[in-house]
Amino acid sequence: MSNKHFEEKKNSSEKENQEVVTEETTNLQEEKANLSEKVDEADKVSAELAELQKKYDELNNSHLRLRAEFDNYRKRTLREKSELIKNGGENALTQLLPVVDDFERALQNIHKAEDLAGVAEGVDLIYNKFISYLTSQGVKALEVVGKPFNIDQSEAIATIPAPEEGLKGKVLDCVQTGYMLNEKVIRHAKVVVGE
């Protein structure tokens, strides 16, 4: 073979090698670019993950604090409610003490008194004072005599023949007075109903 031919082959081989190297370089550059994109993407995901972890920690901390605050609130309200139940009647009982004082004075003088009209008047005054106190607390007596029998307010303990036709189903007599506290019946009246 001639040198020329050998050189042409050599040049051709070098050219092929250069093309292969160029192709491999291009492939390497593409892989490097892909790898760089993947690293950038991984960095973004890592940054997003770190931010999400931070938000999670903040929300978890906020949730724990809120739970602790609610638990403290619940305990405080239970304590206040128990104190209210325990001492809630204090005001009512304190206002009853003057009536008790009047009864004590009446009991001391009732045995020594010779004027029964004066004793009766004193007991009437104490009774009126007590009824006035109950009224100020929202307690009122049920007026049921002469009205139609109402099962929500009264309890029938007896029935008797009505003296008149118009009194059938109406309350003829009240044996025990019923009371309401702020529009709620706290004791039903015990009544006799006409039939």
Rank of each mutant, 00 (worst) to 15 (best):
T26G: 12
V119A: 09
S2M: 00
L28Y: 03
L93S: 07
V20F: 07
D115Q: 12
R65P: 00
I157V: 15
N109I: 14
K15D: 02
P148E: 12
C174L: 04
A42T: 07
Q176F: 11
Q53H: 03
V185L: 08
I131R: 13
D152P: 02
G178M: 02
D173T: 08
L107S: 07
Q153L: 15
D115E: 03
D57F: 00
K86L: 07
V139K: 01
G88K: 06
Q53N: 15
E155N: 10
K140M: 03
E24Q: 14
L66D: 06
G194K: 01
Y127N: 09
S12Y: 12
V193T: 09
E69K: 05
Q137L: 05
L52V: 14
I151L: 11
Y179D: 00
R187Y: 13
R76F: 00
D43I: 08
P98H: 13
G122D: 11
H111E: 05
N27Q: 13
K190W: 01
I85P: 01
E183M: 08
V100A: 13
R74K: 14
S132T: 14
E8L: 13
R79Q: 05
N72H: 07
S136C: 03
L134H: 04
N128P: 02
L97G: 03
D43H: 02
Q137S: 06
V39N: 13
F149D: 03
N60C: 10
K147Y: 05
V119G: 02
K38Q: 14
K140D: 05
F130H: 03
S82T: 07
G122A: 15
G169A: 14
